[in-house]
Design a protein around this nucleic acid. Sequence first.
DNA 1: CTAGGGTTAG
Length: 793
Amino acid sequence: MNLMATTWKMIVGNSPLCSFACNKKEPLEPQRIKKFGIEHLRFRNDFKLLDKITQRINVSVSGSGMTRPVNGSEMGVIEDTDFELISGIIYDACKEQGVNAMPGLLCWEWNLTDKKNIVDQLSYCSREGNLGVGKIFHALVIKTGFCGDKIVDTALVNMYAKCGEIGSAVKVFDGMLSIDVASYNCLISGFLSNEMFDEALGLFAQMGVWEIRPNHYTFSIMISGCGSVFAINEGIQLHAHVVKLQDVVNGVVANSLLTMYCKFGMMENAQSLFQSLPKKNVVSWTAIISGLYQQRALEKALLQFYLMRQHGFEPNEYTLTMALSSCGGIKQFDNGYALHAQLVKKGMASGAFVGTAIVDMYTELGQMDNAEKQLQEMGTIASAVSWNALIAGFVHNNNIEAALKAFHKMVLNYVPIDEYTFSNALKACSSLPSLSTSRQIHCWVIKASSERNLHVASSLIEVYGKCGSLDDAEKVFDQISMPDIVSWNCLVKAYSQHGYFEKAVSLFKKMVVEGVKPSGSTFLAVLSACSHCGLVQEGKEFFKSMLMNYSVIPEETHYCCMVDLFSRSGHLEDALDFIKRLPIKPTAPIWRPLLAGCRCHCDLQLGEYVANRILELEPDDASVHVTLSNMYFDVGRLGELVKQRELMKLKEVKKEPGYSWIEVKNKTYKFFSGDTTHPQTPEVYDLLEKLINDIRVVNHASTLSEISTPHTELGLCNEGKLLYHSEKLAVCFGLLNLPAGTPIRIFKNIRVCSDCHTTMKHISKITKHEILLRDNYRFHHFKQGCCSCGDFW
DNA sequence: CTAGGGTTAG
């Protein structure tokens, strides 16, 4: 206990929870006692099952050997000979409820007149959460006249509380003839597990009124409840309380305090409490490891794990999963392997939880082969969670094909699909992006009634946004009852990505009105819309309002967006000025949009300056040389162009992600993606043109991007630039400076003049227009003339 | 009647 005794006294003195010890009132009033009989009888009408059973129970009329249906006044008077009959009925009812193996019921050795047996059965129902059977036993309790017995009634309270029928628990509790601390504990625990913290607190305070002293059970329950609902004040008061009543300080209470502080994130308190524990057990160690783990203090968690082992405690499944996950999180390859090896040795590696944690660890370490192998080794033990971890791993590691394959395999293996699966699979689709696959999954989502799950809905909005199906995105959004910040952001982003600045802003305003505070991502979306629409003034105002009106602190990405806003619109000096006045040291990603702006607006001098700044920060960045070489090409300085290309090649070779591939008819062609306006191999052009229907555009590590029809779109690209154009074919990359993963659109028969392919605006217009006109992905055929120069729009 | 605890998604 790290606080001074006086502090505790102070807290105790002020605590409303500490009143019980001094607040003496009358014991139970007589009315309460009278009431109880009626209360219990009322249950008969409350429960269908109870009715059913009372109808079916025949009671022999004493001495006559005849039976007739029981009536109300005879409740509770059953003769011994009827118990076998009742047992049979209960057995049948249990079977109806799908309970085949009620312990004790099958062996028929128990006696229904035995109170202990009934209590045992009720506790069994509590543990299993089997309300139906519990109610049958309640009926039996009434029949046998055990109601009114303190222990039986307490067991009933417990049963209803644990089965989630808290109202009935309260009823039984209110009807109890005499109440002791155990009954209170059961109901308090029931309130807490049904998320009724205030009621639990009230009941706890009420104990004092009846002069019932809380015991260590009570404290454990209450303290753990405080931890779950983040009731810091109450928790500390209870701690004070426990210190005051030294007789209740035991290991269990101390452990619950420990856990509570961990849940509050008050790790210093937890640590000092932990140090002061004379007898630490596995629970204490687990609590502290878990606390550190949840604070994402993974090194510390791992250290604690090793300390635990040094102190001779055997780690269990729980500690092991946390240890594995920590190794993954902080990329401790060696420790991860060592743990895995030990687990294999102990035969624990294929356990459901530990096994999944191993899968997850390998995905975090980027070793998807090992992750997949582990999943295979788990065989049928592998749960939906294990599969989800694998799929998410593939998505994170940008292997979309493998992610979808794993999803498919999951389905083939009859692993139940859940909301995590949907979310992961949709994420994979949005990386392609593939509208047809997304729609298929959406159907599935609807069938599984998961469309209101926030994660799934947001994934759907995202994927429809990526595919350009803004109507669908909006429809999904409208179905959400309580959209949260992420769902809002997805929708704002969808509109922003497609250049609907006004719509994005009106959504922004709407979310503010509806009381959702915009986040960094919201501003990113809005700023990027400004940037692509050339709205410099609006962008500047939004940027200003971030911190001033919404207290969102701008981050690197926002700075990039602002630089892009200035650069794209030709305000190169403003961009430079903005960078120079940043509160942080400018990074390469902040400089890059300015370099792109220099190219578009033909400022070679500034371009060279910016290029050097980027190369200072990231000497291996080949794309800088690509841009520079193109700029030299533009002004005809071929000597320098060649120099840059040489530099570029040297670096690109080292940096594989600098390449993309185009796969045509199973042949793969490499091309440069650093700057997509860079001339490609003529061979690639020819094939593109000839085999447009077969095109597969592939980027970076992924090996497959599905193109379902020639007019759907997919692909990944950094910058929205015209990749290639001719009279017959134009491939536009992305929607202008959008993140990797933005769709590539393929247009046929577009006439574009050869000058304007460098201007961003025109592509944005093509894209926007195409989307506006899109009707089941039909092409839009452009008229004669250039959209940029010919004032087509 | 009581304490503890892990893995997956937007």
